[in-house]
Amino acid sequence: MDSVTIVPFSPQHQAAFKQINVEWISDMFTVEPHDLEQLDHPEIHILPNGGEVLLAQHGDAIVGTVAIIRTGPDEFELAKMGMKKEARGLGIGRLLCQAAVDYARKMEAKRLWLESNKKADVAVKLYESIGFVHIPLRDSPYARANVHMELLFDTLTT
């Protein structure tokens, strides 16, 4: 996808970030309070302490999003990965997921984790293909979370 650029979040992207995520979540699940906290206020719930939102831009349009949220001194959560309907199946999710992995690695993370749902089988297969492995479920702020995965970074790799 050479016509897609991965760009960092700026306040002008907040509406697209929210709209894309509310759309995909609503298609399969219920938008939950924790979703709205993050989507309405990424400057409070995502960006502090080295967190980031990355966006896939095609021309002037934002067509996909992913958030990387610091959850500990050397770990991040991959969250809020979504695509506009017309951009699904084009490899943009792989670009965003790889950009999130690269970002976490650059931030010297030892662990990148995520929560998902078995109904999002395309996303789960994507995560598996990138190297995420399934781990036991843990408490989650999301009722829909029934998949928990992580990617551990080799601490010897520079």
Rank of each mutant, 00 (worst) to 15 (best):
K80S: 05
K80W: 06
M81C: 12
M81E: 08
M81P: 00
M81Q: 08
M81R: 01
G82I: 01
G82S: 14
G82L: 01
M83H: 06
K85Q: 11
K85N: 08
E86M: 05
A87P: 03
A87T: 05
A87D: 08
A87L: 10
A87I: 03
R88K: 13
L90I: 02
L90M: 12
L90R: 10
G91T: 12
G91L: 02
G91H: 03
G91S: 06
I92F: 01
I92T: 08
G93H: 07
G93P: 01
G93I: 07
G93Y: 04
G93R: 07
R94D: 13
R94M: 11
R94T: 15
R94K: 15
R94Q: 15
R94H: 13
L95K: 12
L95F: 00
L96T: 01
C97D: 06
C97E: 06
C97F: 05
Q98W: 01
Q98V: 14
Q98Y: 01
A99H: 02
A99L: 07
A100L: 04
A100T: 01
V101A: 09
V101W: 08
Y103L: 07
Y103R: 03
Y103I: 01
A104S: 06
A104T: 02
R105T: 03
R105M: 07
R105H: 12
K106V: 01
K106C: 02
K106N: 11
K106I: 01
K106W: 01
K106S: 14
M107W: 00
E108D: 13
A109W: 10
A109H: 10
A109C: 09
A109N: 09
A109I: 06
K110R: 15
K110T: 07
R111Q: 12
R111M: 09
R111N: 13
R111V: 09
L112P: 09
L112W: 11
L112N: 06
W113V: 04
W113D: 06
W113F: 15
W113S: 08
L114A: 08
L114G: 06
E115G: 15
E115N: 02
N117K: 10
N117M: 07
N117G: 02
K118H: 14
K118T: 15
A120Y: 00
A120R: 10
A120L: 15
V122C: 00
A123M: 04
A123H: 01
A123S: 10
V124T: 12
V124R: 05
V124I: 11
V124Q: 04
K125D: 14
K125L: 14
K125H: 15
L126G: 08
L126H: 09
Y127G: 04
Y127V: 10
E128P: 09
E128K: 15
I130K: 12
G131N: 14
F132N: 10
F132M: 09
H134Y: 12
H134E: 13
H134M: 08
H134S: 14
P136Q: 07
P136G: 02
